[in-house]
């Protein structure tokens, strides 16, 4: 057929297209990650990789396994629902190796003030003080036990 003969160059061009497309498919087969599409249009393995991030906050459940004495003080007081690491900071390293990683006791002057410094912006029912007026410069734990802060008789040690 002479039409095919005269359109031969077009078939060559089309052939290049097909060739490029096949090459694309082959490369695609190699480079697309194996778990892509496992759950949706993404790399399924990524979920596990994100989930493998190291933990820094051990969680109060972990602390409470050993520090039952503190839990006993805490659970009847106003700070019953304040988790250990809210004040003591991230201590997974301590849970990992309690013998060699010893946490530093937080400075109550900074720690208590962070939450309890009086400000009109805070919810009205939340206990607030002006630190300078409140304690005459004495550290908070002179009167309050941070684990159970109410000033009942003998509340502070």
């Amino acid at each position: 057929m002479s039409v095919f003969k005269d359109a031969g160059h077009l078939f060559r061009f089309a052939g290049l297209f097909v060739l490029a497309f096949l090459l694309f498919l082959v490369i695609r087969g190699f480079v697309v990650p194996k778990t892509f599409g496992q759950y949706g249009h993404y790399r399924g393995a990524a979920i596990g990789e994100v989930g493998a991030h190291p933990i820094k906050f051990a969680g109060h459940q972990t602390c409470e396994i050993c520090h039952t004495d503190v839990l006993d003080v805490k659970k009847s007081g106003k700070h019953a629902h304040v988790n250990c690491e809210a004040c003591h900071g991230a201590l997974a390293s301590h849970a990992d190796d309690p013998a060699s990683v010893t946490p530093v006791k937080p400075d109550t002057a900074v720690l208590c003030a962070r939450c309890h410094t009086a400000s009109a912006a805070k919810p009205k029912g939340f206990p607030q003080v002006v630190p300078a007026d409140h304690s005459n410069g004495l550290p908070c734990q002179t009167c309050h036990n941070p684990h159970s802060p109410a000033m009942a008789a003998g509340g502070a040690k």
Partner: peptide, 9 residues
């Protein structure tokens, strides 16, 4: 971590 550290729930 944020919930763990939140003192007021």
């Amino acid at each position: 971590a944020c919930c763990e550290a939140c003192p007021t729930g």
